[in-house]
Simulated assay, not measured.
Amino acid sequence: METSEQVKQIKRSFRLYMNGVTSTSMRQKGLDYKINWGVSQMDLRHMAEQYGKDKALAAALWQENIRECKILATLIMPAADFTASEAMEWAATLSTVEMAETAVFNLFQHMTEAEQFSLMLLANEDKLVRICAYNLVCRLLKRNNECTPQLYAALFKKAAIDLKSADRQLLHPLVKCLDYVSSTDTEQAKEATQLLKEAGFGAF
């Protein structure tokens, strides 16, 4: 079956799982997608298993401005074949915090070039991209226990700026990330603790 036909088939199947109450609740909370069927993450994982890893299909699904298509894309994209530059193209089109968090958890943290990608995200000025960055660095730290000095330096440099923000959507993943670093047995723990203290986040 051609990729375009697979996408059509997938979009039709969402009707079987749609949840109007969930969809309405998401809209009220500001999760604004062109189309949102309210399908649960668990149901989407079951759907993804039917298709396996398929780079072409994942790329096509990501192009759709439909919540469920984008989440499926993060589950179907083979992480080992997904480059930092390709991931950056996806990150540039993020439209919600939910999708930034989902992409990190399902896909970005498993990429071969995850650290390189993190540096690219941290250098970006878009808020959702940086939310993605802080979530990703935190996931990498939890998976690997530590990161390269270059990534730590980039994290602290950007954090020093963003900690002055009043935007809680941005502050939440940032403070969570620094809080994790401060709890580790690394040289960077003291610096993370100092940043949080200076910004007034003694405990989070």
Rank of each mutant, 00 (worst) to 15 (best):
residue 79 A to H: 07
residue 79 A to P: 02
residue 61 L to K: 00
residue 99 M to C: 03
residue 57 L to E: 01
residue 69 C to I: 03
residue 116 Q to P: 13
residue 88 M to S: 11
residue 48 A to Y: 09
residue 94 L to N: 09
residue 44 L to R: 11
residue 115 E to Q: 05
residue 44 L to E: 04
residue 51 Y to S: 13
residue 115 E to S: 06
residue 66 I to Y: 11
residue 67 R to P: 03
residue 116 Q to W: 02
residue 70 K to L: 12
residue 68 E to R: 02
residue 76 I to M: 07
residue 46 H to M: 13
residue 102 T to S: 05
residue 48 A to F: 04
residue 64 E to Q: 14
residue 86 E to C: 13
residue 85 S to Y: 08
residue 92 A to D: 08
residue 78 P to S: 02
residue 86 E to Q: 09
residue 99 M to S: 03
residue 56 A to D: 12
residue 98 E to W: 10
residue 81 D to A: 10
residue 93 T to H: 14
residue 103 A to M: 09
residue 74 T to R: 01
residue 80 A to L: 15
residue 72 L to R: 00
residue 102 T to E: 14
residue 89 E to Y: 05
residue 98 E to H: 13
residue 78 P to W: 00
residue 104 V to N: 13
residue 85 S to R: 12
residue 64 E to H: 02
residue 63 Q to C: 01
residue 95 S to T: 15
residue 45 R to Q: 15
residue 114 A to H: 10
residue 57 L to R: 04
residue 50 Q to H: 02
residue 69 C to K: 08
residue 60 A to Y: 04
residue 74 T to Y: 00
residue 98 E to D: 15
residue 69 C to S: 12
residue 43 D to H: 07
residue 67 R to Q: 04
residue 98 E to F: 14
residue 73 A to E: 01
residue 98 E to K: 11
residue 69 C to G: 05
residue 105 F to V: 11
residue 110 H to L: 12
residue 87 A to P: 09
residue 67 R to T: 01
residue 43 D to T: 11
residue 110 H to G: 00
residue 68 E to W: 04
residue 59 A to M: 09
residue 47 M to G: 06
residue 66 I to F: 13
residue 97 V to N: 15
residue 86 E to K: 07
residue 62 W to V: 09
residue 61 L to W: 00
residue 57 L to S: 08
residue 82 F to L: 13
residue 55 K to A: 09
residue 95 S to A: 14
residue 62 W to F: 14
residue 67 R to W: 02
residue 115 E to D: 02
residue 79 A to E: 07
residue 71 I to P: 01
residue 117 F to W: 08
residue 85 S to Q: 12
residue 75 L to F: 02
residue 64 E to M: 14
residue 46 H to Y: 08
residue 112 T to L: 15
residue 54 D to Y: 10
residue 114 A to W: 07
residue 105 F to L: 10
residue 109 Q to K: 08
residue 98 E to Y: 14
residue 78 P to G: 03
residue 81 D to L: 10
residue 91 A to F: 00
residue 54 D to A: 11
residue 71 I to F: 10
residue 70 K to Q: 11
residue 62 W to A: 13
residue 117 F to K: 05
residue 53 K to N: 13
residue 107 L to D: 00
residue 77 M to A: 15
residue 114 A to E: 05
residue 95 S to E: 15
residue 53 K to P: 04
residue 48 A to E: 05
residue 104 V to G: 06
residue 86 E to M: 09
residue 98 E to Q: 08
residue 71 I to H: 15
residue 59 A to P: 06
residue 70 K to D: 02
residue 60 A to M: 12
residue 109 Q to D: 06
residue 97 V to T: 10
residue 102 T to G: 06
residue 100 A to P: 05
residue 95 S to R: 14
residue 101 E to I: 11
residue 111 M to A: 02
residue 98 E to L: 05
residue 89 E to R: 13
